[in-house]
Design a protein around this nucleic acid. Sequence first.
DNA 1: GAGTTTGAAACT
DNA 2: CAGTTTCAAACTC
Length: 257
Amino acid sequence: MMPSWICRRKFDAASESGGCKGCKCKKSKCLKLYCECFARGEYCKDDCSCQNCNNEHIYQNIILEARKQIESRNPLAFAPKVVTSSPEIGNDPNKTPASGRHKRGCNCKKSVCLKKYCECFQAGVGCSVNCRCEGCKNTFGRKDGSNSMGAEAELEEEREEREKAVAEQKLGKPNTLLSQQPKHFQAVLEEEMSDAVGLRGSDGSPMTCIKTSSPNGKRISSPNCDLVPSSQVARGGRKLILQSIPSFPFLTDHDHP
DNA sequence: GAGTTTGAAACT
DNA sequence: CAGTTTCAAACTC
């Protein structure tokens, strides 16, 4: 039987779009971040068509080992990738997920951040200064914050592009683009999120959080930057609260740093 | 449905 | 740690 907590997206946020389709892993045994289920902190499920899957309840120990290994490499590997703004946005047509940002940013070169290869676009958020993308055209927001055209024309163009992109996504497969992040991975903001998720102050100047960058350009944001300092109060008195990140339930019980 | 493209993740 | 390989999703035909 499948525990009810598995793949909540299937039952709530993505219930309309069928966004949670399950993985199709063949070689990773669903024990690496390549596996979407594993990466989300979920067991594989009936929808999956994976092979040699070890991401099942009966392999708890194996999963635990795999997680430890991955976390040893990147402690934030299972942290939410995207910090979205408050849930109410989903109900407000005037607001978009672009208010959120992908924490590590993307590294797109050819997709110009207009396809779901782009993690930012896929999550329905704009690119940010965290991104190292080339030719960014992310319709949810570009990393250069390009409002150079200024004004409403730009906004209108972006809106059209976004709608077009969303429509295209919807045509073939169910669109997960705008689906909510798993609720257990969702960040909640009190008041409003600062621009670019704490990367900029209200005056647009860079925040003081330190971003480290690893070789090959991959960045690992500092915990202070990602999770907001202990005060949890960003400049301007805005407060960011990351909700708990319970991945595999059995792991959260006794496997927590 | 099969094959290709893409970029993250993993590896050396 | 920079470069390369592997991987699976997204995409195209």
